[in-house]
Design a protein around this nucleic acid. Structure first.
Lengths: 254, 254
DNA sequence: CGCGAGTTTGAGGTCGCTCAACAATGGTGG
DNA sequence: CCACCATTGTTGAGCGACCTCAAACTCGCG
């Protein structure tokens, strides 16, 4: 059953609609596909942005730049997800959306998608799900930033990215390494820390034998230890995460 | 035009649908109304929660408690808003929803509301708007927690609450004080700071002549200065906020 | 080979923390 | 109406996590 796992955390009765919506959106958007190299700005901050996107390959991120220079990443999008779904409701954001790696995206005009949503509850459900899913992750992120130590945040980030890549089918469930196309400085901007401190925490988890990050490759040596470090920031939704002992069967109703 | 301002930050062509949706939801939910005193837990964390709520009076907040004790508030809901709209999509959250003051809420079963959403695009739009609006505020909150100093965060919080109370019609646009039913400890849990530090920052802004907080009343003495302190965390959506020089006419399309 | 972006490490500073004591406040019952 | 208690607020002292600044090192790439 394709994509069952992706939607498994939500009300199970919605699954069929979500899967139909997913298929419809894919066929809807696949006509307008383009490749974008790493490091480009896909959507300017504070500018009109009439499109909703689907990320076919690569990573993108939503990032805000403060007036005096510092950046803060707000969300990172992984292959298979929709992003800027909110374009249907707001015509601009204060945030930019940038490519973290070389990417392939598909796009659709917000009006066209909204018209389809009005007529097709499957598509509408799939879009709503994407927004709800993002908000869910933002909640966890708030808790991490507000109450997590640097080490806990970094461990949680690694565990979460790993889990999301498994769910999206980008890597196998038993894979222990993955492509992570961010610099230490960008990781700092994501975790609300300085690049220097990221470097030190990265060294600590390397010395602990937990994980090694080098050359855009994250290698997890001790998944259980990773989960233990991240545990204070763990939430209900992470129950399917390999770092917390989750397996695929775990993703069904509680 | 009732509630025009509330929805003014979004695509203007959606306004009529939002206003119709607002009216429909109000008449839909008003049959099931109840009063709840301050300090109660409306929705338990990690528990089934089959309802969507409308907050008629008072304040509520979404808060998560970490395994080792500390709390983090994620969102604060003000009169007139919907909350737990995500109940339509997920059957449980890791967060509790608590009453910060005495409140009056209305509720509706998630299935009933979802059925109505499927048939009525106005209601569906109003619900989607609520989720999008929340997500928008979460983005700003992430930036605050990740990159703002304690003083900036607190100033931003005051400015934002003030602005939201104006928009919701709870206070007049030129009002300079408002009811803020949170303890210093709760403010700390919202801003990711300790209660002790909140107290010190509160003292600093009092000594600066910016604002005084006492006995659940926030009095803003110098709105411009408040805006200046919060400025690094300001975003596009705050342009209608009185602390940033916003007025009602400012809320139209840019 | 040399350049530039990214990483690593050290030294020293500061913001916000914890712990602890005390003061004010407000609600309760005698 | 007052005495009491629990909660909240206030302040000090000392500490630690994370920051900034700065310098060297590594690496991929033209």
């Amino acid at each position: 059953m394709p994509n069952a796992e992706r939607f498994a955390l939500h009300r199970p009765e919605l699954l069929p609609a979500l899967q139909r919506g997913e298929r419809k959106i894919i066929s809807l958007m696949s006509s307008d596909r383009r490749s974008i190299p790493a490091g480009r700005t896909l959507v300017e901050g504070d500018a009109d942005h009439p499109f909703v996107y689907r990320l076919v390959q690569g990573w993108t991120g939503r990032v805000r730049t403060l007036p005096d220079g510092p950046n803060q990443y707000i969300l990172v999008f992984l292959p298979g997800g929709l992003f800027a779904v909110k374009s249907m409701f707001v015509n601009r954001h204060p945030d930019a959306i940038v490519t973290l790696s070389d990417t392939v995206v598909e796009q659709i005009d917000h009006r066209k998608l909204r018209d389809i949503c009005d007529q097709d509850p499957d598509v509408s459900m799939r879009c709503a799900w994407q927004i709800v899913e993002e908000e869910r992750r933002l909640h966890g992120w708030i808790v991490s930033l507000g109450r997590g130590s640097a080490e806990e945040r970094l461990a949680m980030l690694i565990a979460q990215l790993h889990g999301r890549l498994v769910v999206s089918g980008t890597i196998a469930r038993d894979a222990r390494e993955f492509f992570l196309p961010m610099t230490q400085s960008q990781l700092g901007d994501y975790l609300g820390l300085s690049a220097v401190h990221i470097n030190r925490v990265l060294k600590a988890i390397r010395d602990n034998g937990i994980a090694t990050f080098r050359n855009q490759r994250m290698v997890v040596h001790d998944l259980d230890a990773l989960g233990r470090v991240a545990d204070p920031l763990r939430d209900f939704y992470e129950r399917t995460n390999p770092a917390f002992g989750g397996d695929a069967s775990n993703s069904r109703e509680a």
